[in-house]
Write a protein that binds this DNA or RNA. Structure first.
Length: 126
DNA sequence: GCATTGACGAAGG
DNA sequence: CCCTTCGCCAATG
């Protein structure tokens, strides 16, 4: 076979290409209902990589150039804190978007986070 | 090729 | 209760 051994690496290096882990994260995030939020750990657990919640965050880094747009503002850390607000266009973009969706944010933390929490493994489970 | 960092999370002191 | 350390995996320096 003329096909040389091609290695599947650097999923984020090619945002226009589809790669499992990143696309999977985006798919879950896009399914988050309006007015709800979820955590990195919940997504990671749903994907079976709960020990690698960091990778979810890393995937979200590519969400900015993912199409269609990924509502990354609905993803916060397990504390309900807008840990990623610093990565948005503006520092207030994230909480503004959430506020429009009916999610109150106080001091960079989602108010009543526990009640608005949306667990993919629980509600989206296939 | 090794060391550091990162949008996390759980555990330990 | 607050702070530190470890684990996880990939990217970057």
């Amino acid at each position: 076979m003329p096909a040389p051994a091609k290695k599947n690496i650097t999923p984020i290096a090619a945002p226009e290409k589809k790669y499992s882990f990143f696309e999977d994260v985006y798919a879950v995030v896009r399914q988050i209902p309006k007015g709800r939020v979820t955590s990195f750990g919940a997504i990671a657990a749903y994907l079976g990589t709960k020990l690698s919640a960091r990778m979810v965050g890393w995937a979200m880094n590519g969400a900015h150039h993912a199409r269609p747009k990924v509502p990354a503002q609905r993803v916060v850390n397990r504390n309900g804190m807008l840990s990623g607000k610093n990565h948005f266009k503006t520092a207030t973009e994230m909480e503004e978007l959430l506020k429009k969706e009916g999610v109150r944010v106080k001091n960079d933390v989602v108010v009543d986070f526990k009640n608005k929490f949306w667990d993919p493994a629980l509600e989206l489970k296939l």
